[in-house]
Design a protein around this nucleic acid. Structure first.
Lengths: 194, 194, 194, 194
DNA sequence: CATGAATGAGGATTCATTCAT
DNA sequence: TATGAATGAATCCTCATTCAT
């Protein structure tokens, strides 16, 4: 049992190190040896847990993406009103992007880069379903514009990534009222104008 | 004259090759030798035009960014109404992102990655000023929400990057009416609701 | 134990190869790949034992210098008379320079070239102290001229390097009586004439 | 005529640049491009005056060596007494090594390094003949020890190189009385003790 | 004579991965 | 399971030399 825990710890340490190093240097500028060192493990050990470097980032991506969506939907319930549900999810996502900044940065880099392979990317998207369902409901109820989910996501959710990166770069500091303003902009962009 | 032209051609070929290869493989997975091969010059020749690999991508970034903003503002005039001006600029940007997809992809990767150094990034932002001025005017006239430029950009412009990448990945095909919908969403997100 | 020994063997092989190749070609004309090949290891392996090429020659220099001075003073004892002590040390040095010709050549090249960095050079000089002490004693006893150690070294010891190099180049063959003559010249140059 | 002078100037500039750069960096760490730049000439131009890099240093070596011996014997006359002649030559050499330090350093590096090819080395030695003749006379007159010229050179002349290098490295500063002491040591080492 | 541009060959160094233990 | 040592294959970059002008 202790042995199993130790294994899990090592795996987690590797994933953690991968996120931090890839965030700061990019995928190809992050050597396996550094990941190993940061995880306090031998380079050879990585290959007991992951097939190769690509597999390591793929799995890291999938895990972080799952963590992200889990967080996003943790308090959401399907019987909420569309607007309440959207606000809830949106704010959870904003919360995640700001509080788990490292993880969110990692996702942003993966999503804008040829660094993750296609199957893993698709795997990562799956968990977004509840949001898409909510939008579906919203469209039916005439509250949400009848747009492609891609466009809805582009305007309702994705801008948060830009704001987070900008903040991380130090160009701009997000506070509570910025968040509120951003939420308004998000909702305004997808809601049906009465 | 012929000699100078030849030099310019070589430089351009190198920049072009850089864009294409970095797009497909990322910065660190693009060897100088491949760039040289694609540009049909010797690897050593690159160093006649650029100090090193970092300088090559920095300069490429700045040039593409300039091309992007030039395109965006080419037909804009300062005496246009805020809404007309915004629509014009927005559509030029959309146009660029879809028609010069390769270049736009390159910018997206640069902007979401620790691949460009800070001075070049700052240099690249400079040229956006006319849009910021337009927003300033819009705010004064009570047409545009009094938000930080970062938030306005996040909602009005940045979503196009997401849509372009998604389309490039083949998950989704943008047509004319999608563009129109996206424009509406962009404008709705930043305009003051009457 | 076997593992440690293997490591030591590899390091030694690398140092040996460095001496031989640098002797014949000079520092900059000796590629790491050739050193690796001669030591029968991969080029990458060198970097397990040395930080970089400069470090490799620095360490090699220090080791050979230490070997040189160890040999020089191996049979010397501080209670010997100044003249006996000097003769003993001088002849050990001559012996070393002629028998361990490769090593002596290497030192000569290092000492006449901007190839070793300053700290290593200083480190290499340290071990000469017993000779300087002997001269100090000789000066007190009125047997050795009251000159700077640098001048004493220039006349008493350094000429051996010239002779060794000349012999190595084949211009001249040193035999026993030459050695004796050289010793006389050395001693005559620094001893006080009665 | 002006054209010829210009050519000579360029050649001289190249030789000068070679000396300075090789002195500071060594032969192989001195690129042709840097030599060209320092001589204010195109890299291609070097090849109008010299066959290749090796030829450039060979010729530079020979010229500096000639300059050295010319200086050494400039005021010497064959009818001087052996001791006067030796002192004169020795002091001229010392003078050269200290005043034309750069040139002397260059020679030292060439002489202790596999950097000059054999024929050039031999060519360089030729001009030393007057000194060897003087020693010959000294031996006949019973003033100079009947030793090989190599040994005489090793003790009478070569130590100056060591002192010069040591001074150049900053470990030691030679003044007038040091020179006098060194001369005494040189003469003591080769003169016959009465 | 003179050159700046061009380059192929080569050099130092790194790194993903393997292997003996 | 875990590792440190080892490595071949790259990668960035340099440089002596050439060539078209």
């Amino acid at each position: 049992m202790a042995k199993l825990q130790k294994s899990i710890d090592k795996r987690n340490a590797l994933v953690k190190a991968t996120i931090e190093l890839v965030n700061n240097n990019g995928f190809h500028a992050t050597p396996m040896s550094k990941i190993a060192k940061m995880a306090k493990v031998s380079p050879a050990t990585i290959y007991l847990y992951f097939e190769n470097k690509q597999d390591l980032v793929n799995q890291t991506y999938i895990e972080v993406k799952a963590e992200y969506t889990n967080y996003a939907f943790a308090t959401y319930e399907e019987n909420m009103s569309v607007e309440d549900g959207f606000e809830l999810i949106w704010k959870r996502i904003a919360d995640f992007k700001l509080k788990e900044c490292e993880h969110a940065m990692f996702l942003a880099q993966c999503d804008n880069t040829p660094m993750i392979d296609e199957p893993s990317r698709i795997e990562g998207i799956k968990h977004l379903q509840p949001l898409l369902d909510l939008w579906q409901r919203g469209k039916k109820e005439g509250l949400v514009k009848p747009l492609s989910d891609f466009i809805l996501y582009a305007y309702a959710i994705n801008p948060l990534s830009f704001l987070m990166i900008t903040q991380k770069r130090g160009a701009f500091q997000l506070n509570e009222s910025h968040i509120e303003e951003a939420y308004q902009a998000a909702w305004d962009s997808i809601k049906v104008n009465k």
